[in-house]
Amino acid sequence: MKPIKILAGAAMAFGLATTAIAEDKTKVGFVYVGPVGDGGWTYEHDQARKAVEAEFGDKVETVYVESVAEGPDAERVITDMALKGADLIFTTSFGYMDQTINVAKKFPDVKFEHATGYKTAENVSVYSARFYEGRAVQGTIAGRMTKSNIVGYIGSYPIPEVIRGMNSAYIHARKVNPDVQFKIVWAFTWFDPAKEADAAKVLIEQGADVILQHTDSTAPQAAAQAAGDVITFGQASDMAEYAPKPRVSSIIDNWAPYYIERTRAVMDGSWASSNRWDGIGAGMVGIGEISDAVPAEIKDEALALKAAIADGSYHPFTGPLKKQDGSDWLAEGETADDGTLAGMNFFVEGIEGDIPQ
């Protein structure tokens, strides 16, 4: 009977080892504000989730919940992920900020990463991309390409991230075309194809022949395509199905390297709370291929601007610049500091209309 006892003990030990191996699998959760098929913001976050799986294979397990409303429902979803054993949770919309902080207090051993916010804790990091760098490139193309001198802009919510983008696009459109005007429609949604399409149609009716958007669906692209001689830019994702026109270029959010880096940090125990804000130079913001609908000289100008931003020789917010009310903001050659940009709540001189409160 002795050999049998040894075998039983070995089997028991093997079972424990198997359990330990299973428990070593790192569980990573993702909370999305839109559907994974939105073609924009959430689609790119989900591509990054898949990149995490590809990088680590069976060492990780990823889970996600899509179309989670900002507010109390988000706290329920985040809590549920933590209760189900997530080691790391990415909450991928600005409006999840307070909910992320609240849940993190209850689960100190879970690591949290909140996109586009500013509140951190010992187990909460924040990360964002310098989308305004891409807006500078878009603004340059928009200012050169418009024939009506009216550029329409669909805003989601009047938060600093969106306001920064509007200002950057306008500054650079005006640099190449002093006669340019921006007309802004606030959709008050991140993802609502019907509202986004209606916003695009309103702007086109007001004479806009260029549409920029800070919303997540491809509906404005479709509206511009139906209208005819209107150009657009992909938002968050390439939206290349609308190339070469109306979509003439895009801002592409590349979250994969960051998600892989932070997942690895949890796995090897080196994770620490941080605040990351990367742009074109670091590869977190990509510029989609500029189509042949853009004349070669305009394309060259846009790519030169992209290169200057990437190597740090140019900052999109460089003075002289005034605020909308005419007060001085940046002197000649002065650049905006990150603190001001992170909390931006004003338009620059020349943009018409008020920021909703």
Rank of each mutant, 00 (worst) to 15 (best):
G234S: 05
G95P: 05
E332T: 13
H114S: 05
A296C: 01
A336Y: 01
A282M: 08
S291T: 15
T79D: 14
S237H: 09
S67Q: 13
S250P: 06
D87P: 09
M284N: 06
D80Y: 05
A136M: 10
A104W: 02
V137Y: 00
V63H: 09
E61T: 12
P244S: 05
W329R: 09
E241N: 11
K147Q: 14
S148D: 03
D300C: 03
P244V: 01
A48W: 08
K105T: 15
T19Y: 13
T116C: 08
A136N: 02
T91E: 06
R135I: 06
E301Y: 00
D38G: 05
G326N: 15
Q225H: 13
F94Y: 14
D198G: 11
D253E: 15
E261L: 06
F182K: 00
S128F: 11
E332I: 09
E301P: 02
A69P: 07
T62D: 13
M267N: 07
F112E: 01
V124A: 01
F30V: 12
G95D: 04
I163A: 08
D278A: 13
Y64M: 04
G353N: 12
T263E: 07
A293W: 07
Y64G: 03
E349M: 07
V285S: 13
A48I: 13
K25H: 03
L16F: 04
V31A: 02
L321I: 08
A272H: 08
T189L: 09
G155W: 00
E66K: 04
A82L: 02
V137H: 01
I260Q: 10
I280H: 00
G343Y: 10
S249D: 01
K27S: 08
T92K: 08
I89L: 00
S327F: 10
L7P: 06
A10E: 01
M166G: 12
Y127Q: 03
T18G: 14
L305Q: 03
A240R: 14
K245V: 07
I4K: 15
L16T: 06
A54H: 12
P160I: 04
G279T: 11
I298T: 12
D38R: 01
A142E: 00
A51G: 06
E75K: 11
S250T: 07
G152Q: 06
